[in-house]
């Protein structure tokens, strides 16, 4: 059992070990959906929501797998649970708010293949977090993901107006900007005692 305090888990997951900029999880949506601030923040919200639900599900599932002594089923059961959670969230959003559903479009089903979500479930299991700790961990990871996505979108919106040489346009300039962003996030490592 891990005794880490809740606030430390949150700061750790969102800033010091930011899922995107320090662990390289969820790079695909980070590069793909970070074109505009509006889309980026909505995507961040959806990912945070799925993270919280699948983190809770993974916590229960881990208990079950330990009880029946079948750790080799961990990966398969986690990914199936995440895929069905995403499907569930999709249906709920469609029912409650068709507008939001239309705004998110194709990005909603693609959350399944976002490695940040499976990574979160695996990390919380290997760290041995309890129920409340897992919840805060998911919340922090989601907040960090959203923060990184919005920051990146801001940079890229400004890049639109910059004069960029033809050879570095597109992926190259995005990667270099992400590198500098990641460099600045390393400053947060001083926060961990």
């Amino acid at each position: 059992m891990n005794e880490e305090p809740l606030w430390s888990i949150f700061i750790n997951a969102s800033l010091i070990n930011n899922f995107v900029l320090a662990y390289f999880l969820g790079i695909c949506p980070f590069l793909g959906v970070s074109g505009k601030i509006g889309t980026a923040s909505k995507m961040g919200g959806a990912v945070t929501f799925v993270m919280i639900i699948s983190s809770m599900a993974a916590y229960g599932l881990h208990g079950l797998l330990v009880a029946i002594n079948a750790p080799f089923l961990q990966l398969i059961s986690y990914i199936v649970v995440i895929a069905s959670t995403v499907q569930l969230v999709e249906m709920i959003i469609k029912k409650i708010s068709p507008e939001l559903f239309r705004a998110l479009g194709i990005f909603l089903p693609l959350i399944t293949t976002n490695c940040a979500i499976l990574g979160l479930a695996l990390f919380q299991t290997s760290k041995g977090y309890g129920f409340l700790q897992s919840f805060v961990y998911a919340l922090g990871a989601g907040a960090g993901f959203t923060l990184a996505l919005i920051l990146m979108a801001g940079i890229r919106e400004n890049l639109e107006f910059a004069q960029v040489p033809k050879v570095v346009k597109g992926t190259v300039i995005t990667l270099l900007a992400a590198g500098i962003l990641s460099l600045s996030f390393m400053g947060f490592s001083g926060l961990s005692g």
Partner: peptide
């Protein structure tokens, strides 16, 4: 971590330059 972004960025830059 930043080194990963930079290395891949510069590799892609080299390839872009070569193709163009």
């Amino acid at each position: 971590p930043p080194g990963g972004f930079f290395t891949l960025g510069f590799l892609l830059l080299g390839i872009n330059w070569f193709t163009q």
